[in-house]
Amino acid sequence: MSDVTQRDAFFDRLYELAREDVNIVIVAADMSAPALDKFRRDLPAQFVNVGIAEQNAIVIASGLALTGKKVFAYAIAPFITLRCLEQIRVANAIMHIPITIVGMGTGLSYDSDGPTHHLIEDVAVLRAFANIEIHSITDAVMAAAYADISCTKKKANYIRLDKDFYPVIYDGGFDFSHGLARLREGKDNIIIATGPMVHVANAIAGSPGFEGLDIGVVDVFEIPINESTLLETIDGVKKIITLEEHFLPGGLGSAICEILNDNEMPVPVKRLGLDINAGYQHCYKYGGRELIRRCHGIDRRSLEQAISEYFCAQPQSVTI
């Protein structure tokens, strides 16, 4: 288990970069973090606090970007994205102003805070916009790498940071430029996951009782998905499960199905994620993230059963 969160890994690295580059600026909407405290202390001229005004954070950040700054607009994830959709659409999608939007606490990270603080629709909504890349961070190494990568982006870039501690699965120096990575080999069956669910997929695929199923695991951390690399990665696979902590319509699973369909690849796909028909009522279940996941059938035990059943079943013949 990493002893730093994705957030601290990201901002620790950004701090190092900002010490060397006066054009790196953080625009925060009254958000703090241990790693941000030293940024504010040592680099006050590069830290702008707009107060609890996320929409203003986006437009101020965009104006700063027009003056040559590399700007990171940072707030609690649902508020720096969904609250600011019109600002992001006009300034960053339509006008192509490159800023990095850093959302803290995606998915069910803020498990005990209720649905206002959960973020389970953002991928569907933001991937409907042109000129924006979405990056769902998986571990602290990737988080730090994306501090570097974000400084080089010529388009808007949204970093989804999870709140919890996770094991480190990537080596330092890993090349994240392909937007996805095969973490575990598997010939016939593959789980394509994103964000925190990558860790769950990894754990299940490697656990006793599942080794015989020869399950591969792919981490997709960039949307739009790198289509050619994805097709190469899943070449020859017989069944796919997609796994995300996000409502199913429009999320990772939808994006995968669109690519398979457009490339006339008749591979069966089972999408696992949050059931939109269940609405938001489950977000009021308190007692931890795993409990909310259980309501949607994506807790560890439910997933083991679903994955086992799907991959063990005989594939149905598919014609297109």
Partner: peptide
């Protein structure tokens, strides 16, 4: 207007 204010702040920083 917000973009204008961001540019004004950036001008001062620069």
């Amino acid at each position: 207007y917000g973009v204008a204010a961001g540019i004004a702040l950036g001008a001062r920083m620069n």
